[in-house]
Structures are given as C-alpha cells and as structure tokens.
Amino acid sequence: MPIDPARATAAEPRTVPLVWDHKDVILYHLGIGAGTPATDPAELRYTLESRLHVLPSFATVAGGGMALAGGLTAPGIDVDLAAVLHGGQSITVHRPIPVRSSGTTLTSRVAAVHDKGKAAVIVLRADVADHDGPLWTAVSQIFVKGEGGFGGERGATERLEAPVGAPDVTTDRLIREDQALLYRLSGDWNPLHADPAFARTAGFDKPILHGLCSYGIALKAVVDTALGGDVARVRAYSTRFAGVVYPGETLRVRMWRDTPGPGRIQLTATAVEREDAPVLTDTVVEYA
C-alpha cells in the first residue's frame, strides 16, 4: 500500500529553514486577489512594501508551502497527486507574521492517518518559530482517494451547526481566469490547477482553484470587512474544504459575528454561478 500509517506517524519530525521576504508576501497577496483597486489605501497594505502587513493565511505558503510539500514525501507516504485533495486546514497564530523571516524554522510531522473507507486522510502538523519564539502552528488534512480500507481509526468528524438568521456581512469576490496560475507561483505546483488534461484525469471538467487560495480569499474578506483591516486581530482560522470553485466564478463569503461564540466569526464560502455550491464550510475565524 502506498501509505504506511505506522511508519508515517512514527517518523522523526523534520526541521527545515523557512525563508521569505516582502516579495513572497506580495506575490501571495496578489494570488488571493489583492490589489483591486490598485491605488486603494486598503489594498496597498497588501501590495506596497512600505505599508505591508501579512495576512495570517500566508502561513500556508511561507517558504514555498514546505509543510505540505514535506508531508507528502514523508516516510511511509507515497501517493498519486491526481488522487489528492485538501480536506481541511487550520492555523493558530502566536504573534503577527513578520514581512521577512529571520532564523525561522519549520518542524513538520505526520500527526495521524485516518481510514475513511474509500479514502485516507493524512493529518500534517507544522510548527514554525524564529529567534523570538513560536510564530504559528498549522494543521492540514490531506484527503487521498482510493487509499482507505486499511483497518485504521476513522478519526473524529467535526461539524458546526449552521448559523441562525441572516449573515451580518455578505461579500462577493470574483475569481479571475488567471487566479490559479498566479497563486501556484507561491509554491503549490499541482498540475490539477493548471493542466486541463490532468484535471480531467482527477475527475474535473477543467482546472480548479486551489483550496488554499479560496481559504486566503475568504480570510482577506473577513479582515477587510469585519475586522477593520487589522490582520493582527486574527488568532486562529480553520476550515473544511467542501467543494471546488473554478477560475472565472464568484466566491460569495457570508459571515456571522460572535458565532459560535464571542470573538469568533463563522463563515461560509459558496460558488455563486453554481447555485451557491459549497466551497468552504465549518469555517471559523477567532479574533481579538
């Protein structure tokens, strides 16, 4: 079997240097749709180095997405990229992410491998720190079709209750036709997001947008509309990837404040042109 759960979870954590600077941050921000209108002061915080702040979801690509790249090549893990989908993602931010790395390291490991029957879910944990201490912790759930049925634990299934009442904020974000092509320059080179022939082998009519791109777009929408544009207020951000969005479509983000509790925004993201097909569900931003 391509996945050996015992070997994967018993492997020693990997620690590697993590390097980025303002160019990587700006490229990531552009990849999730920042910069429109180009001269808007609110957008210049994402695109102009003299005013730059870092959206916490940048953690998913810092250093070229080392957490995911390393996890899928860990001992005991050998999977076909055509069978891989991102199932869920969470980030806990210990302090604001700096514009430039400084003595930064990433320590990653396979925390668990769950048996979902027809699929396996690889849980990757990454802890990032620099000279001043911890920066963030990220947990990724990677869904691998056809790799289940090995008799392992199924793992917990966490679902949030649907919010009650109308959302406090609703905003639409247009996904440009070239959005995936730009986003992949931040480190996710899976051809699923660029090559039509490869996308068809994975069961899609055409290339899909990266789930983590949708993840970043939604967080930027929350920061810009519900958190006064202050990225430092974000403490944690978690989601379940429930479906896909295609370049050229519109992502609709709905937000409910203080749901499911104080200091928490529950949100959903849907594809408008496909009758609000779910894209992100069970999604919460915790904020100060």
Rank of each mutant, 00 (worst) to 15 (best):
E249G: 06
F241C: 08
T225P: 09
Y246F: 15
S238E: 14
R235L: 14
R240K: 13
D258Y: 01
T259S: 12
M255T: 08
R252Q: 11
L267K: 04
G261W: 00
W256P: 04
T250M: 07
L251H: 03
V245N: 11
V272H: 04
T259M: 06
W256R: 07
P262K: 13
I217Q: 07
T225K: 15
L227I: 10
A232K: 11
G229N: 07
T250H: 06
S238V: 11
A242Q: 04
V272T: 10
A242F: 03
P247H: 10
R252I: 06
G243R: 03
R252V: 04
G229D: 06
V231F: 14
P260C: 13
A221Q: 04
V222R: 00
G228A: 08
T268K: 04
A236S: 14
R240S: 10
D258P: 04
Y237E: 00
L219V: 09
A242S: 15
L251R: 01
A236F: 01
V223I: 15
V245R: 01
D224F: 10
V253G: 01
G243C: 09
R254D: 15
D224M: 10
G229E: 07
V244G: 10
V253I: 14
K220Q: 15
T250K: 05
V253Q: 01
G263S: 09
S238R: 15
R233I: 13
T250I: 09
T259P: 02
V234H: 03
P262L: 14
A271I: 06
R254T: 13
T270S: 13
A218D: 00
G228N: 07
A232M: 09
T225A: 14
G243S: 08
D224H: 10
G263M: 10
T259K: 04
F241P: 08
S238Q: 12
P260T: 12
A271G: 08
L227P: 00
F241L: 12
T268S: 14
T270W: 02
A242E: 01
L251Q: 02
V272Y: 03
R264K: 14
D258A: 13
D230F: 11
T239V: 15
G216F: 07
G243I: 04
V234T: 11
S238C: 11
G263W: 04
R235Q: 15
R235K: 15
K220G: 10
R257A: 13
Y237S: 02
R240E: 07
D230R: 08
G243N: 08
Q266N: 10
W256K: 07
A221D: 04
R233C: 03
T270Y: 05
K220I: 12
R252S: 10
W256N: 08
